[in-house]
Simulated assay, not measured.
Amino acid sequence: MIDIKKILIPTDFSETSQAATQYAVELAKKFGAQLHLLHVIEDPVVYMPMFESYALPPKEDFENFAKTRLDNWILDEDKAGLEISTHWVHGNPFVDILKYSKREEIDLIVVGTHGRSFTAHLLLGSVAEKVVRKASCPVLTVRPKGHQFIHPISDDE
């Protein structure tokens, strides 16, 4: 029997992460699992070259943003009955997702995937793909525009 006690949701606060979060919340409810929300704060110079010529916002601004978003990432009505743990770190997304999952003995990682084109994938790589290939636990990838298994509850149920 599959026993899932800890589910990790790495989030970059995108639409794809929100779709993955919906799956993770439902799985956590079904298995009575603890949810771990993780945001990795990347060095802005990596993805925003314009900061080379402008002053960077203070590190605390990125940390406060991450904390606020993580605290409000799951809707209050979805939080009922769930144990949720939020964390943020500075680093490289795929490396720190893997480190966190090992350290916390995560049973399942639920990650959104952007589904970029082949060319964009070659240039940018894919955090989700790297996590799938290197994680020591199962990984569920979710595309926001893909087939959805979560259906709204009707009034008859």
Rank of each mutant, 00 (worst) to 15 (best):
A28F: 01
K29G: 06
K29Q: 07
K29Y: 03
K29N: 06
K29T: 06
K29M: 08
K30W: 03
K30F: 03
F31S: 11
G32Q: 05
G32P: 09
G32A: 08
G32K: 15
G32N: 13
A33G: 06
A33D: 01
A33Q: 00
Q34T: 15
Q34H: 13
Q34K: 15
Q34I: 06
Q34C: 10
Q34D: 05
L35P: 02
L35F: 05
L35K: 02
L35E: 01
H36N: 13
L38W: 01
L38N: 01
H39R: 10
H39N: 15
H39Y: 03
H39T: 11
H39I: 07
H39S: 15
V40S: 03
I41Q: 04
I41A: 05
I41D: 03
I41Y: 03
E42D: 10
E42S: 10
E42I: 02
D43F: 05
P44V: 03
V45Q: 09
V45N: 13
V45R: 15
V45Y: 08
V46Y: 15
V46F: 10
Y47N: 12
Y47D: 07
M48R: 12
M48S: 12
M48V: 10
P49I: 08
P49A: 11
P49V: 10
M50F: 13
M50A: 13
F51Y: 15
E52L: 13
E52R: 14
E52W: 10
S53N: 15
S53A: 15
Y54I: 14
A55F: 04
A55M: 10
L56D: 05
L56C: 09
L56S: 10
L56F: 10
L56M: 14
P57Y: 13
P58N: 12
P58W: 11
P58M: 08
K59E: 15
K59I: 11
E60K: 14
D61R: 13
D61N: 14
F62L: 15
E63N: 07
E63K: 10
E63Y: 04
N64W: 06
N64I: 07
F65R: 14
F65N: 12
A66N: 02
A66T: 01
K67N: 08
T68S: 13
T68I: 11
R69G: 00
R69S: 02
L70Q: 02
L70S: 04
N72A: 13
N72R: 13
N72I: 02
W73K: 02
I74K: 02
L75V: 09
D76K: 11
D76N: 13
E77K: 12
E77Y: 05
E77V: 09
D78T: 04
D78E: 12
A80M: 06
G81D: 04
G81P: 02
L82D: 02
L82V: 01
L82F: 01
L82C: 05
L82W: 02
L82Y: 02
E83R: 12
E83D: 11
I84S: 03
I84Y: 01
I84A: 03
I84W: 00
S85K: 14
S85W: 00
T86R: 05
T86C: 06
H87Q: 10
H87D: 07
H87P: 02
H87T: 11
W88S: 10
V89Y: 00
V89H: 00
V89L: 12
V89T: 03
V89W: 01
V89R: 03
H90M: 09
H90T: 09
H90D: 04
H90Y: 06
